[in-house]
Structure formats: C-alpha cells, structure tokens
Simulated scan of single mutants.
Amino acid sequence: MIVETGAGPIRLAANLKWMFTEVPFEQRFDEAAASGFTGVEFASPYELPAARVRELLDRAGLVQALINTPAGPAGSPTAMGAAYVPGAREEFRAGVLTSLEYAAVLGAPVVHVMAGLRPENADPELAFASYVANIAWAAEQARGSGVRIALEPINKRDQPRYGLASMEVAAAVAEAVDPDTVGVLFDVYHAQVDRGNIVERFERLVPRIVHVQIADNPGRGEPGTGEIAYDRVLARIAASDYEGWIGCEYGPLAGTREGLAWTERIGR
C-alpha cells in the first residue's frame, strides 16, 4: 500500500499476525490485497511449507517484506529467539539456516534475527559476547544472498529480560559485525516506550535501518489511537533516505479494515 504523507510516499506492509485476524491465516493474504496492500510481513512462516506460502503470495500478488528466525517452544528459554541465550548455539544456527531457506523461496529481503531473553543466571557480558558472535555467524550465512539481517530491541517495559537493549546497541552491533549485511529494525512503538525522541533517533540511525514497523502507544493499536504524532513521524521517514517497507505491526482496535482509515488521514 502506497500512502502519501505530504512529504512523499511510504510503502506499508500488512503484518498478518496482527492484522486481518477476523479470518484464518491463509485467507489473510487475499484480505490484505483486497485492502490495497502490495506487501506483507509476519514473524513465522514455518507452520506451512515454503512453497505453500509462496503460492499464497503469488495468488494475492503480494511481496513478502520480512520474516523472523524461528522461535523455540512456548515457555522454553528460546521462546523469543536464541541469539542471546548462551548454550543455544546449535538451535540458533539451525534456525538461521531455515529462515534463509524460506527467505530465498519467498523472496523476503529481510530476516529479523530475534535476540531472545537473557537467562536470569547468565553473566551479562558472556551473554552479550555470545550474541555478537551469533550475529556475526548469521551475517556470514546471509552474505551475498541479497538478504539483510535485522536486529530489533524490545522495550524493557514490555519485556524486561529481552537481550537487545536499544536501537542504538543494535546499530553498534550491526556496525561492528558487517554493516552491509546487518542492520536495525526500527520499531516506532518500541522506540517510543524506550526513551521516545523518535524522529531524532530515526534520523541518526537511518543509515543502519533496514526495516521499520509501526504501532501507536499506549495500546499498540493503529496510528491515531495513541500519543505518537504519526503524521509528523511518517512524513519525516518519507523525507529521509529510507526506502524500505514499513510494517503495520499493530492490533486494530475496531476491526482491520475499519482501522485502515488512518491511512487516509495521514496526508491531510
């Protein structure tokens, strides 16, 4: 979906985990296309064969903008990712390889490598060193494939033990490891909860940003339902050098299609 902001166009991708939940997952591709989207993202395609997901994309005429690396079982140490979990190296590596296989079939340009939770008894420095080494290994696997590795922090209010601390730390890791292959997933919602100052931080980090996601705060609903001045934020993103997708990773407050009215208000 192309939306004019007044400062230029932006490309929106529907997040099919959060949006169009009124229908079963496989029907959400057609719903997204019927609502004007040309791209989609979702964390986990792994419940279906890659060829089936490719078929759903092609049938709806959609581009896959992003996928995540696989998560471990609910309640496990790697339920939110394995990169930051000392001792989970083999699970991490297997997940990265699987995600790159899916990305190749789906044509996804970005794979979000989830950090995961730092175990309570883990040494913080050891956990961080393990994380950086894991990201370096993932970059080696992705190098030359056309896939960018994205690193996303989660704010400490919602998940105090999430390993990756901030957008700035993510950018520093990307710079240290391989800035041509690794970059930042700039989630506006998480940035707002974590210190705010969204526009300045975005513009400072934009050379390292490979994907953007949006939701309002509080409530994580669609833009216009909270305190974030999305008309200005999205206009600044449109005016920047960022040319990638903006994923709508929000939970519509009153139905997905009804909630899309915000896209008509942005450019006014």
Rank of each mutant, 00 (worst) to 15 (best):
33 A>D: 04
219 G>P: 04
227 E>Y: 00
267 G>W: 10
95 G>L: 01
18 W>M: 15
111 V>R: 05
129 A>F: 07
157 R>K: 13
95 G>W: 09
32 A>D: 01
107 G>Q: 09
162 Y>F: 15
62 L>R: 08
235 A>M: 05
81 G>S: 04
184 V>D: 05
238 A>F: 02
192 Q>S: 09
12 L>M: 05
179 P>W: 07
205 L>T: 02
81 G>R: 00
182 V>M: 05
61 G>F: 04
187 D>G: 05
9 P>E: 05
132 V>G: 03
21 T>K: 03
191 A>V: 08
102 Y>D: 07
56 L>A: 09
226 G>L: 08
159 Q>A: 15
149 I>S: 04
222 E>G: 11
247 G>S: 09
54 R>I: 12
10 I>W: 02
244 G>T: 00
209 I>F: 00
63 V>A: 13
110 V>G: 01
213 Q>P: 08
240 S>I: 04
149 I>Q: 01
255 G>V: 03
252 P>G: 12
219 G>M: 07
175 E>Q: 13
65 A>E: 00
140 E>T: 12
231 D>K: 15
48 L>D: 06
205 L>R: 03
254 A>E: 08
259 G>T: 06
78 T>V: 15
34 A>N: 04
71 A>K: 15
217 N>P: 09
65 A>H: 01
196 G>T: 01
133 A>R: 14
127 A>F: 05
95 G>M: 09
184 V>I: 08
19 M>F: 11
84 Y>L: 04
22 E>N: 00
34 A>L: 10
88 A>M: 09
196 G>F: 01
248 C>T: 11
267 G>N: 08
73 P>N: 12
146 G>E: 04
89 R>P: 03
161 R>H: 15
91 E>N: 10
93 R>Q: 15
78 T>I: 15
262 W>N: 00
51 A>T: 14
81 G>F: 04
243 E>S: 08
79 A>P: 03
185 L>E: 06
89 R>V: 08
215 A>G: 07
249 E>T: 00
238 A>Y: 06
179 P>A: 10
222 E>W: 10
15 N>A: 08
38 T>H: 15
167 M>N: 15
49 P>G: 10
66 L>T: 06
244 G>R: 01
194 D>L: 11
138 A>M: 04
124 P>I: 07
170 A>W: 06
68 N>P: 07
210 V>C: 13
235 A>V: 00
156 K>Y: 07
223 P>V: 10
234 L>R: 02
101 E>P: 04
163 G>H: 03
